[in-house]
């Protein structure tokens, strides 16, 4: 077991090194002169030359690459071209918003996905099963950003239940504690007894979380259903039924436990994908997360920020996938034996 985990972790090194290399050469070879972008069209040749010198852009590509590797491994991504602030600092500000959104989405998706999947499997080939599965297929076929707009149109503009965007009402200003607003506002509720913050942050997160969670809900429901169907066909379930154990107990106590094994993997993988998929949802709901931040960095050709953003999100994505693999081998003894 320890050997397997070690092996998986060691394999991360060449992969991450590959990611760093690709990101470097993509930005280095992309059209446009970073110095020109930073100084604007009015800059003269001398200023441009000076800046290239300062940034090390005059050095041979190989040398630039080595410097880049050294700095990146120390998590030093330099300064943002747009704001002049430390890129790492900006990431620290924006990443919690995305993680919070992804966690709430995943929570919704896991709960509803499993419930729908189990119901579908138990009531196989009934109208409930059919409509759930058509619903799931519709969910994965939908442009998420469009769903976001439709949700805003119905629930924010039409019914006025939720705000159209942002994380918190502007008038409720507060000094962020953990940068996870739900947690922060809970702390405020306990500390000052003021529920307004919690209410506002909940209202703001619901629509984006639903939009972002649509695809995971659909995929989790489909996986749960097929896994559950397979499990229900197995001998030990038949034995349990034959022994006269109540059907509900057979399903929830005996079958579900095993049926959820593949679902765990799917939940993990989906969570990793959400971190990047949030780019679209965050754009629609003006959610100040890492996705929207990377996107605006791309449109502004803010190279240090783009590099850092892509590296951090990919590293998280790869890391989550490895954790999922390891977790799966822990809960599934069959894999461990191999």
């Amino acid at each position: 077991m320890a050997r397997y985990i070690l092996q998986r972790l060691l394999l991360l090194i060449p992969t991450l090194l590959g990611v760093l290399t690709i990101v470097f050469f993509m930005t280095a070879l992309s059209p446009g002169d970073p110095a020109r972008v930073m100084l604007g069209e009015r800059a003269n040749a001398q200023q441009l030359e000076q800046l290239r010198e300062d940034l090390g852009l005059n050095k041979p590509l190989g040398e630039q690459y080595l410097i880049y590797l050294k700095r990146t491994l120390r998590l030093d991504f330099g300064r943002s071209i747009r704001t002049g602030r430390s890129v790492m600092e900006e990431i620290r500000e924006h990443f919690p918003a995305t993680i919070e959104l992804a966690l709430v989405s995943m929570f919704l998706a896991t709960f509803f996905g499993i419930v729908i999947g189990v119901l579908s499997a138990v009531k196989q080939n009934t109208w409930l099963d059919y409509s759930a599965m058509i619903g799931a297929l519709t969910g994965v076929s939908m442009p998420v950003f469009w769903l976001g707009l439709v949700l805003i149109m119905i629930f924010s503009v039409g019914l006025g239940w939720f705000p159209t965007g942002g994380r918190m009402e502007v008038r409720l200003f507060f000094e962020p504690i953990t940068r996870f607003y739900l947690l922060d506002s809970l702390i405020i509720l306990i500390r000052d007894g003021d529920p307004a913050y919690l209410k506002s942050s909940l209202q703001h997160i619901i629509l984006p979380a639903v939009a972002l969670g649509t695809i995971p809900i659909a995929i989790i429901a489909r996986t749960t259903r097929s896994s559950m169907l397979e499990t229900l066909r197995q001998d030990y379930v038949k034995t349990a039924r034959a022994a006269g154990i109540h059907e509900r107990r057979v399903i929830f106590r005996y079958a579900l436990k095993n049926a959820l094994l593949p679902v765990v993997t799917v939940i993990g993988l989906q969570f990793g994908l959400l971190l990047a998929g949030a780019i679209l949802t965050e754009t629609i709901f003006a959610w100040p997360g890492i996705g929207r931040w990377i996107y605006s960095a791309i449109t502004a050709r803010d190279y240090p920020a783009v590099q850092a953003g892509v590296i951090i999100v990919s590293a998280f994505f790869v890391g989550i996938n490895v954790v999922v693999d390891i977790l799966y081998s822990v809960i599934n003894p069959k894999i461990r034996l191999r």
Binding site: G18, V19, M26, L273, I294, S314, F317
Partner: peptide, 21 residues
Amino acid sequence: RIIDIMLAFPYVLLTIVIVAV
């Protein structure tokens, strides 16, 4: 190895970055 590295980028992010380049 190259495939592993490509799969290390989330799909959406990969398309966006390639187009940006």
